[in-house]
Each structure stands twice: as structure tokens, then as C-alpha cells.
């Protein structure tokens, strides 16, 4: 068992699950989407990104790219939320935007997990 693999696998999958948790629920209903969950999803996604840095292989590069996509989507969602909160009101329309942005991040995270599993299966050891 490789401790490094456990840690990076843990964060990659946790990034996806947290992201899903935030994304799940009626998109226009503000009460179903928690700020804490978005915050944690972003932090974990960033940690996963840093963990992926430094692998120069082909699959490593693609993994890093998917993570970067998820980060950008989540940061965009956070920014939209912040703007909305301090310049107006967080209504159903804004929530829908935030949730759909996190949905994009979810797709990237799923791709990342699939690639990660694929790489693990391919490895002979």
C-alpha cells in the first residue's frame, strides 16, 4: 500500500463528492445549497490540484488539467455568489447560475476520478 496514493486518491474523490453534495437539489432553491459545502468543495479541489502537480506523464498532465478546470468553475461560482450577495440579492436566478457552474466543475471532477481509476487499474502492481 502506498500512502501517497491513498492521500491523493482521498482528496480527488472527496473533491468530487463534496462538489456533488453542493450540486444536488433544486437549482433555483437557495436553501438547498450550503455555502459551507461550496467552500469545502473549493478548498479540497485546490488541494487535489496541488497534489497532482509534478507528475510529468501524459495521464498526470490530463489529471492536472481537469483539476484546473474544476477550480476555475468553482472560483467562478464563489465570485458570482459574493457579487450577488453584496450588490443585490441572491435570488433563484443567481442560485441557478451558481449551481450550474458547480455542475460544470462536477463533470471535470468526475472525469478526473475516472482517469485516476483507469490509471490505477492499468498499473500492474
Amino acid at each position: 500500500m502506498n500512502l501517497e496514493k491513498v492521500i491523493s486518491g482521498f482528496f480527488i474523490i472527496l473533491a468530487m463528492t463534496l462538489n456533488f453534495g453542493f450540486f444536488y437539489g433544486e437549482p433555483t432553491d437557495t436553501t438547498l445549497h450550503s455555502t459551507y459545502e461550496l467552500f469545502l468543495a473549493l478548498i479540497i479541489s485546490l488541494i487535489a490540484t496541488v497534489l497532482k502537480i509534478g507528475d510529468k506523464t501524459q495521464i498526470g498532465s490530463v489529471l492536472l488539467a481537469t483539476s484546473l478546470v474544476a477550480d476555475i468553475q468553482l472560483i467562478a461560482a464563489v465570485l458570482v455568489w459574493t457579487f450577488a450577495q453584496y450588490t443585490g440579492e441572491v435570488d433563484g436566478k443567481t442560485t441557478a447560475t451558481i449551481v450550474s457552474l458547480s455542475g460544470g466543475a462536477l463533470l471535470a471532477n468526475i472525469t478526473s476520478v475516472i482517469l485516476y481509476i483507469g490509471e490505477t487499474l492499468k498499473s500492474k502492481r
Binding site: L46, I47, V50, L51, I53
Partner: peptide, 10 residues
Amino acid sequence: LRTPLLVLLV
């Protein structure tokens, strides 16, 4: 920069 970045993030 991996470790310093992780420390900062956490």
C-alpha cells in the same frame, strides 16, 4: 512548491 502551497491552502 507543492508542499508550501499545500501548507498555505490548509
